[in-house]
Amino acid sequence: MVEAIKSGWITFKSIFIGMGVTIRHFFGPSVTLQYPDERPVIPDKARTKLYVNIDDCIGCHLCARACPVNCIYIDTVPATSDVDLGKTSTGNPKRFWLTRFDIDMAKCMYCDLCVHPCPTNCIYMVPDYEYSEFDRTNLIYHFSNLEPAMVAEVKEKAEKEAAEKQKQREEMMRKKAEEAKKKQMEAKKPPQQNTDGETGTKSDKSDNGDS
């Protein structure tokens, strides 16, 4: 009997304690965010959506290499010598036409690893998290700002220049070979002409190395 009254007392006590908890929450503030009307403030380093400031990109492929899921696709075409692509805002000279810079956000795993290697800080996350699409292909973002016609033109130019360079190089190789022959033939003579040619190639190489 006493036991029964005791257990009954405990039952009611625990029910009332529980009801006290719920009524406190009933009158307490709610944590709901009225989403489309109110939006949360996103923290500074939130990983949300990748963005590429294409004007600053030098086409170095570092981000694409860093990507663990290979969702960054970059195609570059070297700029011909008759155009100057200018410099990035960080002061690096740009040497490549970016014919393609695509990021597949459907594949992206938001690891942030592509952001850090960038020498010009041109790839980074922007606080936009509402980019659902009905079609998966719409999630591939194209950042390259070159027109297709432009791309073709640039490619053609680059090919031409490459071919020319190739020719020059062949020429040079031929010259070198000839000079080597001459050297062999005139082994006793000091090779004064050679030094001129070599300095020329050296300066070319050093320029390339800087870029």
């Binding site: 719920t22 929450h25 009933f26 307490g28 503030p29 709610s30 944590v31 709901t32």
Partner: peptide, 13 residues
Amino acid sequence: KVAGFIQDRLGPM
């Protein structure tokens, strides 16, 4: 609404 308030939500709005 009661369900919402008790669970710190707002319920239908």
